[in-house]
Each structure stands twice: as C-alpha cells, then as structure tokens.
Deep mutational scan, measured.
Amino acid sequence: MDGTRTSLDIEEYSDTEVQKNQVLTLEEWQDKWVNGKTAFHQEQGHQLLKKHLDTFLKGKSGLRVFFPLCGKAVEMKWFADRGHSVVGVEISELGIQEFFTEQNLSYSEEPITEIPGTKVFKSSSGNISLYCCSIFDLPRTNIGKFDMIWDRGALVAINPGDRKCYADTMFSLLGKKFQYLLCVLSYDPTKHPGPPFYVPHAEIERLFGKICNIRCLEKVDAFEERHKSWGIDCLFEKLYLLTEK
C-alpha cells in the first residue's frame, strides 16, 4: 500500500471551527459572476446526480424540485425535460440570464411583489422559475412545498455562521416524503479558508438530524488541478440523501 486515501476511508478533519467566522457578502458573489470567477459551475452537470437520477425519480412526473443557490445549473433542465417543475433561487441576475441563454430557453421576467426590487424569471414553458433574491428572503414569497431539493454548491457556499438559518429555510420548503439530495466537500479547512466551505458529517447531523434521516450514498475523489491553488492536495465530495423521519 502506498498510503493513498480512497473514497471509502475519508477521515473527518478535527479543526472544524477554523472557518466559522468566514463571510462572503452577496455583493462579492455577484462580483464573481461579473468577473467570470465561476469555476464552481459544471458545464456537463453533476455526474453523481446523473448516475442516481432515475433511481431517485422512480419514474414519477410532476414533482416540484428546488435548487438553492442555483446559478446556471444545467441540471435544472434535466428535471424540466422529465416533466418536473423547477424552482431556483440565485442572487446573480447575470447567472440566471446565462442559464436561459445557454439552454436556449425563452423566458419572461416579473417583479417579486413580496420582495421589493427583486425579480423572478420564468421559462415560456412555465416549468422553470428562478427567483433573483437572497435565499433568506425566499420564504416571504409563499412558493409552496417541494418534493425534492438538489443542494450542490449551496450549503458549502453559505457562510458558516448562517447555516442554521439556511437549514431552517430548507425545512420550511420541504413537503411530505421529501428527498433532499446534498453534496458537501471534505478537505483540510486549515489550508483553505473557503468558500466552498468544509462541511463535516457531524455538521450535517447537527443541522438536519432532528428532522431528517441522513444517509451518505457515495464518496468520490473530486480533486482537480485547479484545487492546488487552494493549498490542498486532497478533496473529496460526498452525496447524501436526507429523508423524512
């Protein structure tokens, strides 16, 4: 054995408090879109979701699917093309516009009456609605409950000090017999300040354990050449399924 860690023996890093005071403002996230600093976007979609999607959907149609901090995630069109209703929230209007443009979807925009100064973008087909606002303002819009949440790049982007508020927001959107698919990253948080932030299993239990059954479905090596600039040499991604207790 050469000592290389595999996707099945990932350790939890003990120094989980080192990132707790890290803060990125909404304006800084918007600047990332304006300046093209969106390496977190996956042009081909998320491979773990693609692998498990049909198993999760079980042939159902007409589900309501929520994408927190959606950006221009191509997976939104995957669900819409399968007959589901997609709702996303994203602070960057540019990111939302790029989604519709890159997916060749016509759309309209209208003000969100409950949140002055914000807009919702709706596909002409009517099954994709993307709200351009802070996720913490979203419950004011009465958008209803969801059958499924796809959380990739959301919890790991939320400032650590806001995670409890974020989890409570997610709980307010969950319908009966929900499936909450959650991706988190595992790396040494003493070497990279984030975002994306390190979210250990214990944190998921703390945030969601009282209401959800929590199961880790898969762990994969997600390290890429660009991650060397973070000062790390190891990065794993974990896919969790959260269901109603």
Rank of each mutant, 00 (worst) to 15 (best):
M1R: 12
M1Q: 15
M1D: 07
G3R: 09
T4I: 04
R5E: 15
R5H: 14
L8D: 15
L8S: 11
D9V: 12
D9E: 09
I10M: 11
E11H: 12
E11I: 14
Y13T: 13
S14M: 08
D15S: 13
D15Q: 15
D15M: 13
T16M: 14
E17L: 10
E17P: 06
E17Q: 12
K20F: 12
K20C: 13
K20E: 08
Q22M: 15
Q22C: 14
V23A: 13
V23F: 11
V23Y: 13
L24S: 10
L24T: 15
T25K: 04
T25R: 10
L26V: 06
L26M: 06
L26W: 05
E27N: 11
E27C: 03
E27T: 11
E28W: 11
E28T: 07
W29S: 06
Q30A: 11
D31W: 05
D31C: 15
W33S: 06
W33Q: 08
V34A: 13
N35R: 05
K37Q: 09
K37H: 14
A39L: 13
A39C: 15
F40M: 12
H41S: 10
Q42M: 14
Q42L: 14
Q42C: 08
E43C: 11
Q44T: 10
G45K: 10
H46N: 15
H46L: 05
Q47W: 11
L48S: 08
L49R: 02
L49K: 05
K50R: 08
K51P: 08
H52E: 13
L53P: 02
L53Q: 05
L53F: 13
D54M: 02
F56G: 07
G59I: 06
K60Y: 11
K60I: 06
G62F: 10
G62L: 07
L63Q: 14
R64A: 02
V65P: 00
F66W: 00
F66Q: 00
F66C: 06
P68V: 01
L69G: 04
C70L: 04
C70F: 02
G71R: 05
A73C: 12
V74C: 08
E75A: 03
M76T: 02
K77R: 10
F79Q: 00
F79D: 01
A80Q: 03
A80E: 02
D81L: 04
D81C: 05
D81E: 12
R82M: 06
H84I: 03
H84Q: 02
S85Y: 13
V86C: 05
G88D: 01
G88T: 00
V89A: 12
V89I: 10
E90A: 05
E90H: 06
E90P: 03
E90N: 08
I91R: 04
I91E: 03
L94W: 02
L94Q: 15
L94R: 13
Q97W: 07
Q97T: 09
Q97L: 05
Q97E: 02
E98G: 10
F99G: 00
F99M: 05
F100Q: 00
F100W: 08
F100G: 01
T101E: 13
Q103P: 01
N104Q: 14
L105F: 03
L105Q: 11
S108Y: 09
E110C: 08
E110A: 09
I112V: 11
T113Q: 10
T113K: 01
T113F: 03
E114K: 09
T118G: 13
T118C: 05
K119C: 07
K119W: 04
F121V: 05
F121E: 00
S123V: 03
S124R: 06
S125E: 11
G126C: 12
G126E: 07
N127R: 12
N127G: 06
S129R: 09
L130M: 09
Y131S: 00
C132Q: 15
C133L: 10
C133W: 00
C133G: 06
S134W: 03
I135G: 00
F136E: 03
F136L: 09
D137G: 05
R140W: 08
R140I: 15
T141C: 04
I143F: 15
F146Q: 05
F146S: 00
D147S: 02
I149K: 00
I149T: 05
I149R: 00
I149L: 10
W150G: 00
D151W: 00
D151A: 01
D151Y: 00
R152A: 11
R152T: 11
R152I: 12
G153C: 05
G153F: 08
A154G: 07
A154M: 05
V156M: 05
V156D: 13
A157W: 06
A157H: 14
A157P: 00
I158Q: 06
I158C: 08
I158E: 01
I158M: 05
I158T: 12
N159K: 05
P160H: 09
P160N: 01
D162A: 09
D162P: 00
K164T: 14
K164Q: 15
K164R: 08
C165Q: 15
D168M: 11
D168N: 15
T169N: 02
T169L: 13
T169F: 07
M170W: 01
M170A: 03
M170Q: 02
M170D: 01
K176S: 09
K176E: 04
Y180V: 07
Y180E: 00
L182H: 00
L182Q: 00
S186D: 15
Y187W: 05
D188F: 05
P189E: 06
P189W: 09
T190D: 04
K191S: 12
H192V: 09
H192K: 04
H192S: 06
P193I: 03
P193K: 02
P195C: 00
P196Q: 02
Y198I: 14
Y198E: 02
V199G: 00
V199F: 05
P200S: 13
H201E: 12
E203D: 14
I204A: 00
I204E: 01
E205H: 15
R206G: 09
L207R: 03
L207Q: 02
F208M: 12
G209M: 15
G209C: 05
G209S: 05
K210W: 09
K210V: 05
K210H: 15
I211Q: 15
I211K: 12
C212S: 02
N213W: 03
L217E: 04
L217V: 10
L217S: 05
E218H: 12
E218I: 04
K219A: 10
D221C: 15
D221G: 09
D221P: 10
A222C: 14
A222R: 10
A222G: 11
F223W: 10
E224W: 07
E224G: 10
E224M: 08
E224V: 11
E225P: 10
E225K: 10
E225S: 11
E225F: 13
E225W: 07
R226D: 15
H227I: 10
H227S: 06
S229L: 15
S229Y: 15
W230Q: 02
G231E: 12
G231M: 03
C234N: 05
C234L: 13
L235T: 00
L235E: 01
K238T: 07
K238G: 10
K238N: 15
L239S: 06
Y240E: 01
Y240C: 04
L241W: 03
L241K: 13
T243S: 13
